[in-house]
């Protein structure tokens, strides 16, 4: 009975799953199934990860990457949301730009890093510019999609009470599009991190720092894998927490949205 109830507890099972994986990983190293020279043991990686948390060099790299990521995302929202509203509310504009976007969008954003390396002298500017370019697409597209989903009856209701177009945009279109925008921003956050770290790989130490630079430099060391896995663990923790915060904020702010879609299901 007690075992049954314990198995129903999500956090406990999750912790057990993680502990099991780490245990198996450590055991594989101890028993010689995987040689520690090929792949480091769990204990070595975890102690390295603990060491990195106190390593000023690593911390400044993390701050540098996250700083560019945050600035890039803020700029993305500032650019892409108004652009999405303009394109979504003025059909002529969408007709003119839509096809051009359809050709620009499939270009994998990281392919722009080589020409950007030539064009930009400041590597931080370059990183942020590329982040904004790549992260704008999901926000722009979700904003336009969300605007199309606004219920015409909701708009008409407000118009029937005599409100003008600006009030309809502010009181109906914006709130009902907001969940879509938020989902776009969450997607954009992942894209921004991918582009930011990729830029750091390619720009290297020249004028920049960041998790990517740290890893490329660690790659030359004899215990490179230990560093790389430990750093990836921290990146995972940061990504997990930031994604969790996004989801939590969305759930709180858009309770009306999730509650309704769950009822509809």
């Amino acid at each position: 009975m007690i075992a049954r109830r314990l198995l129903d507890s999500g956090p406990l099972c999750g912790a057990l799953g993680a502990a099991g994986l780490v245990g198996a990983w450590e055991a594989a190293g101890r028993t010689g199934f995987i040689s520690p020279t090929v792949f480091p043991r769990a204990s070595a990686v975890l102690s390295r990860a603990a060491g990195l948390a106190a390593d000023a060099g690593f911390l400044s790299c993390v701050v540098s990457t996250l700083g560019a990521w945050a600035i890039g995302l803020l700029l993305t929202v500032a650019v892409a949301v108004p652009a999405g509203f303009l394109l979504g509310t003025l059909p002529g504009l969408e007709r003119a730009f839509g096809p051009v976007f359809e050709f620009l969008r499939p270009i994998p954003s990281v392919a722009l890093i080589p020409p950007a390396l030539v064009l930009f002298s400041d590597k931080v500017d370059m990183k942020i510019t590329l982040i904004v370019y790549a992260a704008s697409w999901p926000v722009l597209i979700n904003t336009m999609y969300g605007l199309k989903e606004v219920d015409p009856l909701a708009k008409e209701t407000l118009r029937a009470f005599g409100f003008g177009p600006a009030a309809v945009l502010w009181r109906v279109s914006l709130p009902s599009t907001a969940p879509f925008i938020a989902a776009g921003v969450r997607l954009a956050a992942a894209v921004a991190l991918i582009v930011g770290i990729s830029v750091e790989f390619l720009a290297g130490g020249a004028g920049g720092s960041g998790i990517g630079v740290f890893l490329i430099e660690a790659g030359g060391a004899t215990d490179a894998l230990e560093y790389i896995v430990a750093a990836a663990l921290w990146a995972g923790v940061i990504g997990y927490l930031s994604n969790g915060l996004f989801v939590l904020a969305e759930r709180r702010a858009f309770r009306w949205h999730t509650a309704r879609t769950e009822v509809a299901r």
């Binding site: 999750g14 912790a15 790989f201 790659g219 490179a224 894998l225 790389i228 923790v237 994604n243």
Partner: peptide, 26 residues
């Protein structure tokens, strides 16, 4: 899902480009 779900979500949160130095070293 209770046992592996958190691990999956953690793995997803690791930015994919970080796999590059990992597999390059491996």
């Amino acid at each position: 899902s209770r046992f592996l779900g958190p691990l999956v979500h953690f793995a997803r949160a690791v930015p994919p480009p970080l796999l590059l130095p990992f597999f390059m070293a491996l």
